[in-house]
Nucleic acid binder design. Sequence first.
DNA 1: AACAAAAGTTTCCAATAGGAAATTTTTGTT
DNA 2: AACAAAAATTTCCTATTGGAAACTTTTGTT
Lengths: 210, 210
Amino acid sequence: MSDEPHFLREEKIEIARAEGNAEAAVEPLQLGKRVREIRLSQNLTLEEASKRTGLARSTLSKIENEQISPTFSAVNKLVKGLGIDMPQLFTQPKRSSGAGGRRDITRCGEGTPHPTPTYEHELLATQLTSKKMVPFRTVVHARSFDEYPEWVRHDGEEFLYVLKGSLLFYTEFYEPIELFEGDSAYYDCEMGHALVSTSEQDAEVIWVTA
Amino acid sequence: MSDEPHFLREEKIEIARAEGNAEAAVEPLQLGKRVREIRLSQNLTLEEASKRTGLARSTLSKIENEQISPTFSAVNKLVKGLGIDMPQLFTQPKRSSGAGGRRDITRCGEGTPHPTPTYEHELLATQLTSKKMVPFRTVVHARSFDEYPEWVRHDGEEFLYVLKGSLLFYTEFYEPIELFEGDSAYYDCEMGHALVSTSEQDAEVIWVTA
DNA sequence: AACAAAAGTTTCCAATAGGAAATTTTTGTT
DNA sequence: AACAAAAATTTCCTATTGGAAACTTTTGTT
């Protein structure tokens, strides 16, 4: 693998189009520059990019040179045609913020165990505090809804992804539904909820609460 | 949704898009509808929204009624003025009831596809809007860090769980680290980040952003 | 260096976005 | 129901976008 990606060495940050009207200041970031970078990184000519996006060569040129503000539908053609991702176009690369550079890796099985009769949780990313989300991997021991003395209920929202096996997802306001490997669910946690394994082996899920 | 990452492409994977868009079913999906929902959810009249965004009442009305395709700069004013999360505009809503008892099941592979050159996302739980978290399952196409024109960077925190294969997890402030099946990571998204498959087959991960 | 081909830019014009004000629809009150 | 006020839509017009083609610049070959 190469030693260092091109964009780390580059300086850029030039404030192109200084002549633009005061209004233009509102423009978030060099959409055009972005587009050009992306196009070039794919080794496409304007002509080819034009074919892929359905936008005229000249239009692409103008966009890249910030001579026009493309319409939403044009942006969409760009996005679809070049495989760009929206958020990328809009998110300010607020460099050097200094803040927000945390990272916590949890190796498989190295999380913090937290067993209960029905669930066997493994808390992930426990090195970090003040997280918005709480992720954990859980083995579902429960084999019957009766094993739950009452609904599990708490604040927030929860995302659930089935890693292994199958299970019944009980919720207070809906019919129980069976989930299989690869299925997922998102729900409000104030609503009672509970999982029961239906596969031979205990089912395993990823859970994220926020 | 909140934020997703992504970017460029390699000639191999071109197929999907190349043929898929012979022409242009350009409709990204009711931008107007979304805008209206968001405005109403904030109890704003067109007049008030106009003040906040700097766009004319009439223009807002036309946008909401899909009578015009706003320019990029107009969309930006919208985003800034209404405090919209850009990605919100691109994900399919479908409000259900009040709050508290929501539930959304996504069957394996039934998520909303969102391909990019380097990542192939499948957005999960897209029926629900106003979620605190945005979960998605992603196949990592990228095979080299160079495929990223620049760091992926956006707001919020992200949780990552490796479902299949192995990959290198690049971050702006840390050494790249290799992750294997079952490993997970939690990090601040303002810090540049990117994934590169190191396994024979493209790696697969679960991603949750908040 | 001269030329040809490819890539990119600019021009010109038809199509369309954006704003101000008029018009219509909705909401609330009596 | 009738009216007034508020909100939303439509109209009308100007400014800007987007496309085709002309034009310019760059690249590569002899």
